[in-house]
Every structure is written in structure tokens, then in C-alpha cells.
Nucleic acid binder design. Structure first.
Length: 828
RNA sequence: GCCCCCGUAGCCCAACUGGCAGAGGCAGCCCCCUUAAAAGGGGUGGAGUGCCGGUUCGAAUCCGGUCGGGGGCACCA
């Protein structure tokens, strides 16, 4: 006896992969239609679904599988629902690891990079992600980074890019400066070494100019972006309301401006503090205090960021030998230099009000400075308790402002300062300008030439792209010098302006520049007349869905929002926010521990794929919980996913050709209820619950085949086909295979999302719960459209209700037809 | 220190605007098939929602407090 060979008799998740990859490729299933045309010849509305692009650090890992399983489910759902979907892929392929790998192996960084890209592309393909591959690009391609340079020059022309000397975060191991966002707890995000402060001349983008708009425009994102991300951005921007106050300094022509959130406490300022590492401290220091100050400053500069950030360390500082004059009281107060005041926040100087600010109080107590209460808060005396009185209260010891409440006094002092020309109400932000220079090789060269006579000169647009040198450079970091500096032939150029000998800027751009606009280029990655094609951007953007990790909350997402606003102001895009909706997927962890390169990958994606197949891995990821939750691989069961997919596969083979007619009504009702449910859940991105509904549908159909109306009932076929169509969002290979086993020669990808017959959702009877004092005492089968009166009578007639009432009278009956009646007994 | 989110069966998770606490999975238990064992198929028990209080006819859901967990910002004036 031999089995017929046309259909295999067991589900093999691996054997079905190639077959459908070829079928999809041949059909061009995932190509967006009309990338640039605003005409919509097929009438399908466009929908742009973007996942954060991939960094080619090696092969794909579990985290990639998580993100792209989610975005692919969105994309496939949208396609089934009749949208023209653009689901693009690209690579964020500049960056440090390529260089590190390169000098470890003595290779060109591009070799490692493009090898990894090739490997990832093939892994993506085999995972069955429905990308439109024609959109593909890599940020390390000169055709792409050319436009980084173009944008840089555009921002430069509009005073949004500038160079200045600034204290910067310097990583001694990676030998480069780091953005604020790349410093975690005083350590380099990448290598973990202690970050040092260095004073270097660096390029910046003026993100701070957009601080208020970045805050205001969050109104557009409310409810569409995760709350958590919006909160993180708000914290990061750090808006702070208060006043600028100008203090005259004895022996200095110009007053010194400070910022305070508590101008109401101005009369309580008993000393003045300047950041020890600010130029101002150096300037204000008198000769007879010079030696003491220099010693102190040396000590401050030697301390690491870690030491600086310990908030419980004692306050230190030195008197500078000078006095400042309180602009309202005229009081003369001493000026100190201390390291608890930060040079780069506000103006780098403060008025110190020890009675009402904890830090100032700590310093005053350490230095024996006076503490004067100016707001009566009812708290114990700060000078004795050591606890500043930060509460609300009424002003005292404050001249004309005595008796005002704290809030009124904030306004009144601000107004008075303005009248006197000594200050005004103002707002400051924590958000700083974006430091984008990197002393690294594998990045976009900055298109500026430094000429001894002309200064900064732009590389002419027709010379772009300014390519990286291909030889003559030394990759290894050498004491803070950029690798590009060693490429002498590349660096030495004639000045485009005067023709004299000049030198190229040798820094490269932060890779976050690359990723802050890539989503604009996908619709036309070959566009040559600008960074992005206006027609494509008009057609697809802003992106309908953006999916990626929340670790990018204050970095990439903020930069992308900033750049979009800048481009809007320059008239290049017609919107101010790039991503309409945002989904931030959780991490894949193992037994409570994050997986990372340093800790070793506890679970390897390729192993999982080899064991369970791409569909089961995808289903496992999505079924584990809500997309934004972490997936603990120790809590989930890829075996269970394989089991379910096998059940669907087997069912698809068991369903026979249908008899005529609509089929079993009870089965149809269950099927349509589940389709309806799954549809709503899918629209709300409740992917884990959708899968639960599909599992339920699988069981319904299994029972219908085995012990219900049977395999040839039309309702069973209808249900099986609906199941397989919905399944194609999550397990595309299995779904195609099952669709074919159901007798179709077309692709399930083109079959559409099942329609719900709403007539089938109507129930003939429904269960009404009858409560007494909120506790369920009886259930009644009633018509769904039963009138309230009738239902009330029915409920009151119930013997179980009477029993529960125990003879007590009825004080009230709440009727919520048709589902619920609550009988409230009389008290007593 | 300031701010945000979350606590539901042994575990992961459901429960539409307050209205029957359980959809799904894992593990467990029972049965069937087969077996050297397993895989496979079918079935099944199990929590009153961290804790205290409030609002309400009715609270997992709203409010206040508290405990526990996770996260963001942080000498930011």
C-alpha cells in the first residue's frame, strides 16, 4: 500500500517555505502600486507602514523577529483589507561597529557592512516579511549620504547648523565624542567606559530652537503614540518656567543674568553662585582669590561624571572675592564658584536662596552663609533642620511684596523686574542642541572646507557626494584625531572660494542624522534631484504606522520630529509630524534577563527558526502578549504554536468540497461572531487576542467536522477559508499552504479579509442576568429586543429572586435590557 | 527628589463606554490512539482581581491611600 504523493501527510513547516517565497516573488505580491503617482488606478487607498530600519551588526536576532512580525501583521492586514501598502526596508549601515570589526580583521568597513546586509536581507526574506524590496537602500551608499550632506548645507544656510567650542562627552575607549543621548549614567552607551569632559570645537544642529514646538505638537500625537514615549520626550525637553534676573556685579560693566523658577524668593538670596567650570568664574575671580580658585577648578575638572552625579556628596566651592547686587533689594551678596551649578544649564549662574532651595541650603551650611526665610510656609526653620522650606506660603521680609502668595509673588516680582529693566518672566528648556560631529571614519563626511583666509566654506553642491576616501587613511583612533585626518590626499583641497590651500573638515556625522529622514526617501530611493521625491512624500507621508523600540524615545524619534519641523519651515514637506501612529514593541528576554551581545544571546533566532519554522516563531512572538510588552521566551511555547498551525493545516485538508446551500446555521453564527471579533481586535492592534480568537475558531471548526455538521458542510468551508485568510497575517507560509489544500490556485494574500454577515450576529435569545444587590441570583433567556417593562416583570416574577429577597420589599429595580436586571431590596 | 506605567488561576495573558471575572496558550489532571518511550487526538479542574477605604443599585474597571514591580528625568536652579 502506498500513500498518494500529491499531498504530504504531515505538516512540515520547513518544506513549505521556498515554494511560497517563489510564488510571492513571481506575483510581485508585496510591491506597492504607483509609488509616485497620485493617480490611483486600482482605487486602493495608500497606506504607509514603516518599521525602524535595521542596523547590520550581524545576522537577524530575536528582537528583529519581534518588530517585523508586528509590522508585517499590520501590513498584511492592510493589504487584505484593500489598501495599497508600502512596507519598505532599508539599512542604517554607517556606524562604529563596522569600524571596530574592520580593524580587528583588517578589512574595509564596507566589506563587513555589506556582507551583513546581504545576510540579513536573506534572513528577512526567509522570515516571510512582506517588504517591497524595490524601496531598499543603505545609508552608507554615497547615493544616500550625499543627501545627508545636502541637508546639512541646507540647515547651515538657515542658521540651523553651526560650529562651536563646547564641553563635550568624550569616550576614551571609542575615541569619539558622544551625544547626550549616548551617555547612560556617566558611561558610554556602547562600550561602558567612563565618559570624560573635553572642550572641543564641534558641529551642532539647533534642536533647542524647536523645544517649544516639539512640546506643543505632541497634541497631535496624544492617543496615537504610547503615553510612555510622550512622557519621556516631555521629561527630556524639560520645560521650566521662571524668570531671568540681572544682577550687577561690582567691578563689571555688564550685569550677570540668572534663571530662577522662584523669583518670589529674590529677597532671600544671600549669595550668588557661578559654575566653577564656566568662563565667567574665571573672569570674576579677583587676584587675591586666584590661587584658591585655580586649585578648586583643577579638582573639579578632574572629577568624573559619575562623581558629579552623586547627589548626596557634600557641596564644595570657593569665594571669588566679589559681590553682586540684588536688583530689587539692593543688597550686596558674595559671589562663589561651585560645581553644583552647571555651566550649560540656564546661564551657568544662580542666585542662591538657602531657605527655600535644598542645594543652596546645603552649600550655605557648608560655608557658614546666612539663611533668610522670605516665604512663610509653616515648615520648621531650614537653618536648624537642614531641610529647605519648599512649600507654598505668604511672602515675608520682602518689602513691597510682603503678604502676597507664592504664585502671586512670582508674577509680581517678574513684572517689577521687567519694569526696572532687570529681568522678565521666561522659560528655559533642558533640551540642548544636537551635537553631530563624530571623530570616526564610517559615517557621512561633513561637507565643509576650512580655509585660512575664508573660514568655513561649503563644499559646492555639484561636488556632492563628498565620498569617503578609499585609501590612504588610518582607521585606528589616535588620541582624539579623526581617522579622516590621516587621509592627507583627501584632506588637502583648494578653497572653493579663493583657490588657496585649505583643508576638509575631518569629522563625520552622527548616524542619527542618517536615520532622521530615511522614511522620506523610501517612496523613491533613486531620486536624484533632492533628498526625497516631493511626489512620493505627498503620496505616502506622514507614515500611517511606525513600529520600533522605545529605546529611541529621546534620540531617533526626537531627531526625526525636529528635522521634519525644520523641513516644514523650509517648505520641503507639508506636515509637522512624521509618524501619525507609533507602536513600540517590547524586548525579547529570557527568564527575566535581557538578551544582548555582552550577556550572550540566550536564544538564537536562527536556532529557533531551524527548529520551529518561521511561522511558529512569528506566532509565538505575537501571541505572547500585547505588542508593547516584553516577551519572555521562557514563558512562551513555540511548540504550542507549531501544534496549532498543524491543526489548521490538518483542518484545511479535512474540509471537503461543499454541498450546496449556506450550511449549518449554528456554525455560521459562531464563525461570523469570531470574524467580527477578530476584525475589531485587529484594527486595535490587539494581535495576541486576535490569535486567541483564531485558535478558538480552529476548535469550533474541528468540532464541526468531527461531531457536528461534517466536513462537507458549506459553513465549515466558509469558516475554514476565513480562518486561513486571517491567519495569513501571522503565519503566511502555513496560510498559503492551507489555502492551496482547500483547493485554491490563487494566493491567500490576494483573497481579502473575510466579510462579516451582520445578520448572523443577531441573537434570537440572549441571557439576562438577574441580580439582587449586585449578586447574580438567576438567568433568563429573553429576546434581544425585549422591552424594559417586560423584562422587569419577568425578573420580579423569578422564584430565585424572591428567595434572595427573603421577604424584604423592593426599593428599586435597575433594568439594562436585555442583559441585566438588578433588584435592590429595602433596607432593614 | 519629580513624573509615568503596571499588579487578574502555578505561569503568560483576556474581560467593548462600570454590568455574569475567563476567551486563548503553557504547565497539571483524566481519557483515546499508538509506543520501547514520546509525539498525536479528545476532555477537564483551578482565581474573586496586591492590600485598605470611598463613590455606585452594581467596581478588575472610577476616586483616595498603601504595598510591590517596571520605567523616564535628575545638583536642571
Amino acid at each position: 500500500m502506498s500513500q498518494p504523493t500529491s499531498q504530504p501527510d504531515s505538516y512540515d513547516p520547513h518544506a513549505i517555505v521556498d515554494k511560497w517565497l517563489i510564488a510571492w516573488a513571481e506575483r510581485g505580491s508585496f510591491a506597492a502600486n504607483g509609488l509616485l503617482s497620485d493617480e490611483r488606478p486600482d482605487g486602493r487607498p495608500p497606506r504607509y507602514i514603516v518599521s525602524m530600519f535595521s542596523y547590520p551588526s550581524g545576522d537577524l536576532h530575536m528582537g528583529h523577529a519581534e518588530v517585523y512580525s508586528i509590522s508585517d501583521a499590520f501590513a498584511r492586514f492592510s493589504r487584505l483589507r484593500g489598501h495599497n501598502v508600502l512596507n519598505p526596508i532599508g539599512w542604517d549601515s554607517f556606524g562604529l561597529p563596522a569600524e571596530n570589526a574592520a580593524f580587528k580583521r583588517n578589512l574595509d568597513p564596507s566589506v563587513w557592512t555589506y556582507d551583513n546586509i546581504a545576510m540579513q536581507a536573506e534572513s528577512f526574506r526567509r522570515l516571510g516579511v512582506s517588504f517591497d524590496w524595490s524601496t531598499r537602500f543603505h545609508t552608507s551608499d554615497p547615493e544616500y549620504y550625499r543627501w545627508n550632506q545636502w541637508l546639512f548645507l541646507k540647515l547651515y544656510d538657515n542658521d540651523l547648523a553651526y560650529r562651536k567650542a563646547a564641553p563635550v562627552n568624550w569616550c576614551p575607549v571609542d575615541q569619539t565624542v558622544l551625544a547626550n543621548e549616548q551617555v547612560i549614567q556617566g558611561k558610554c552607551e556602547r562600550c561602558g567606559s567612563d565618559v570624560e569632559q573635553r572642550n572641543l570645537t564641534q558641529w551642532f544642529f539647533r534642536t533647542s530652537r524647536y523645544a517649544q514646538r516639539l512640546l506643543d505638537d505632541m497634541a497631535q500625537l496624544e492617543g496615537k503614540w504610547p503615553n510612555e514615549i510622550l512622557t519621556m520626550q516631555r521629561n527630556w525637553i524639560g520645560r521650566s518656567e521662571g524668570a531671568h534676573i540681572d544682577f550687577e556685579i561690582e567691578g563689571r560693566a555688564e550685569p550677570v543674568r540668572v534663571f530662577s523658577t522662584r523669583p518670589d524668593t529674590l529677597f532671600g538670596a544671600t549669595f550668588f553662585v557661578v559654575a566653577a567650570d564656566a568662563d565667567l568664574a574665571d573672569e570674576l575671580c579677583t587676584d587675591d582669590r586666584r590661587e584658591e580658585f585655580e586649585t578648586y577648578r583643577k579638582q573639579v575638572r578632574a572629577s568624573t561624571d559619575i562623581e558629579r552625579m552623586a547627589t548626596d556628596r557634600p557641596k564644595t566651592g570657593v569665594f571669588l572675592g566679589r559681590y553682586a547686587i540684588n536688583p530689587l533689594s539692593g543688597e550686596r551678596i558674595p559671589v562663589y564658584a561651585a560645581d553644583y551649578v552647571l555651566a550649560h544649564y540656564g546661564t551657568g549662574a544662580i542666585m542662591a536662596v538657602p531657605a527655600h532651595d535644598q542645594r543652596d541650603l546645603d552649600f550655605a551650611r557648608a560655608q557658614g552663609l546666612p539663611v533668610r526665610i522670605v516665604v512663610d510656609t509653616g515648615e520648621p526653620a531650614p537653618a536648624e533642620t537642614g531641610v529647605a522650606a519648599a512649600g507654598d506660603g505668604v511672602l515675608v521680609n520682602s518689602g513691597e511684596f510682603d503678604g502676597l502668595s507664592k504664585d502671586d509673588a512670582i508674577t509680581a516680582t517678574s513684572v517689577r523686574l521687567r519694569e526696572l529693566g532687570h529681568g522678565e518672566a521666561t522659560v528655559t528648556y533642558r533640551l540642548r542642541d544636537w551635537l553631530l560631529s563624530r571623530q570616526r571614519f564610517w559615517g557621512t563626511p561633513i561637507p565643509i572646507i576650512h580655509c585660512p583666509s575664508c573660514g568655513e566654506v561649503k563644499v559646492p553642491l555639484e561636488d556632492l557626494p563628498l565620498r569617503l576616501p578609499t585609501s590612504g587613511y588610518e582607521l585606528r583612533p589616535r588620541g582624539g584625531k579623526s581617522p579622516l585626518e590621516s587621509a592627507e590626499d583627501w584632506v588637502a583641497v583648494p578653497c572653493p572660494s579663493c583657490g588657496g590651500a585649505a583643508r576638509r573638515d575631518t569629522d563625520t556625522m552622527d548616524t542619527f542624522v542618517d536615520s532622521s529622514w530615511y522614511f522620506l526617501r523610501y517612496p523613491n530611493p533613486d531620486y536624484e534631484d533632492g533628498p526625497f521625491d516631493p511626489a512620493g512624500v505627498k503620496r505616502w507621508l506622514p507614515a500611517d504606522e511606525y513600529i520600533g523600540g522605545k529605546e529611541h524615545a529621546t534620540g531617533h524619534l526626537m531627531y526625526s520630529r525636529f528635522l521634519t519641523k525644520a523641513l516644514y519651515d523650509l517648505g520641503m514637506v507639508g506636515f509637522t509630524e512624521p509618524f501619525t501612529k507609533l507602536t513600540c514593541q517590547g524586548q525579547v528576554i529570557m527568564a527575566g534577563k535581557a538578551m544582548s551581545k555582552s550577556l550572550g544571546n540566550l536564544v538564537n533566532l536562527q536556532d529557533q527558526l531551524a527548529q520551529f519554522g518561521p511561522d511558529a516563531v512569528r506566532v509565538t512572538m505575537l501571541f505572547a502578549g500585547p505588542p508593547e510588552d516584553d516577551v519572555d521566551w521562557a514563558d512562551v511555547s513555540p511548540t504550542g504554536s507549531v501544534k496549532w498551525l498543524t491543526r489548521v493545516w490538518r483542518l484545511s485538508g479535512d474540509v471537503a468540497a461543499s454541498r450546496d446551500g449556506a450550511g449549518d446555521q449554528a456554525v455560521r453564527k459562531q464563525v461570523h461572531r469570531l470574524i467580527d471579533d477578530a476584525t475589531t481586535l485587529m484594527e486595535n492592534k490587539r494581535l495576541n487576542v486576535v490569535i486567541a480568537r483564531l485558535m478558538e475558531l480552529t476548535s469550533v471548526l474541528r468540532k464541526a467536522v468531527d461531531s457536528g455538521p461534517g466536513a462537507s458542510d458549506p459553513a465549515v468551508r466558509e469558516g475554514a477559508e476565513a480562518l486561513v485568510r486571517m491567519l495569513s497575517c501571522f503565519a503566511p507560509f502555513t496560510a498559503e499552504e492551507a489555502w492551496s489544500r482547500l483547493g485554491h490556485t490563487s494566493l491567500v494574500d490576494e483573497a481579502g479579509w473575510p466579510e462579516v454577515d451582520s445578520a448572523l450576529l443577531v441573537q434570537e435569545t440572549t441571557t439576562c442576568v438577574v441580580q439582587v444587590s449586585g449578586k447574580v441570583r438567576d438567568r433568563l433567556e429573553v429576546a434581544p429586543d425585549i422591552p424594559e417593562d417586560e423584562l422587569r416583570e419577568l425578573a420580579l416574577a423569578s422564584g430565585k429572586v424572591a428567595a434572595a429577597l427573603q421577604g424584604a420589599g423592593v426599593s428599586k429595580v435597575i433594568v439594562r435590557a436585555p442583559g441585566l436586571v438588578n433588584v435592590v431590596p429595602m433596607k432593614g
